[in-house]
Amino acid sequence: MAKNSALTTLIDLTKDKTNDVAKQLQNLTSSRQSAHEQLETLHTYRQDYAQRLQQAMTTGLSAANYHNFRQFIATLDEAISQQNKVVAQIDANVELRKKEWVDQKRQLSSYETLLSRQERQAAQRENRIEQRTNDELSMNLFRRAHHSH
């Protein structure tokens, strides 16, 4: 029974770890969504300012305003680059957590299979003991019945 208790403890710990990893994965997925939305917003801003620059150039634009537009677009490009790195890092973390979750689920399944096997073997032992006890009782009753004749 100590083996079952230890195995049950392992199963409980593995379930807890699996749930923790699942929560981390859920949080990372939410972060990934948010980071992608921020990236899309930055792309939209950049496209909008590039169009504004084109329009301003057709109607006439001072050198200072042209420089300001270009500088702001360059700043947006840098922000897009940084956000791409953030998204890539989150994506890498999501993949790591997915693998960790799959590994935890596999380990949990292994422990549960082992516990099930142990319980089945214990039940078989109990059945054999009960059968032996019943056989002995039957044999004793049979002997008593034949001894009395």
Rank of each mutant, 00 (worst) to 15 (best):
L76Q: 00
T8V: 04
K3C: 00
L39F: 04
E136S: 08
R128L: 14
I73L: 06
N134H: 08
Q118Y: 01
E78L: 05
E112P: 12
Q104T: 10
Q107N: 11
Q104V: 03
L53G: 00
L53Y: 00
K85Y: 06
H36P: 01
Q71H: 01
H67E: 14
N65A: 05
E95R: 15
I90A: 06
L61R: 05
R120A: 07
L96D: 07
D91P: 05
S138N: 13
T9Y: 09
T75A: 03
L10A: 08
Q55N: 11
H43C: 06
A79Y: 05
F69I: 00
L7Y: 04
N84K: 06
Q121W: 10
N93T: 07
T133L: 08
L10K: 12
R97V: 11
S34I: 04
Q124D: 10
N140Q: 15
I73S: 00
N127T: 15
I129Q: 08
Q55Y: 05
R120L: 02
V102S: 01
N27P: 00
L61W: 06
A92L: 15
H36N: 04
I129N: 04
D135Y: 11
H67N: 09
L115Q: 12
Q82G: 04
Q24I: 03
L108R: 09
Q54M: 01
L53M: 05
R132V: 13
L7M: 11
T59S: 12
T75P: 00
Y111H: 01
L25W: 06
T41V: 07
E126L: 07
S30N: 14
T58V: 01
Q107T: 14
Q55E: 12
S30M: 13
Y66D: 03
D48G: 03
N19P: 02
K105E: 09
D103H: 07
Q24W: 01
Y111S: 01
A123V: 14
I129D: 08
L39R: 08
H149E: 05
Y111Q: 02
A6C: 02
D103A: 09
I73R: 00
A88Y: 04
V94S: 10
R52S: 11
L10N: 11
D16I: 04
Q26S: 14
D91H: 06
R120W: 02
E119C: 03
N4R: 03
V86A: 04
A88C: 02
S30K: 09
D77Y: 03
A64N: 02
Q82L: 13
Q33S: 07
L10V: 08
A50M: 15
E78T: 13
H36I: 12
L39A: 07
L137M: 09
R97W: 03
R144P: 03
L141I: 12
R97S: 13
L96K: 08
H67Q: 13
M57S: 12
L25H: 09
H149I: 14
N65I: 00
T133Q: 13
H149S: 06
H67S: 09
Q131L: 15
K85V: 14
E95A: 14
A2E: 10
M139A: 01
V86T: 07
Q54A: 07
T29C: 05
N140P: 05
H149L: 10
A123W: 12
T9S: 11
L13N: 13
S34L: 10
S110K: 04
A56W: 00
W101H: 14
E112Y: 09
D20K: 04
D16C: 06
Q104S: 13
K17H: 06
Y45M: 10
D135H: 11
T29I: 03
Q89G: 08
V87L: 06
F142T: 05
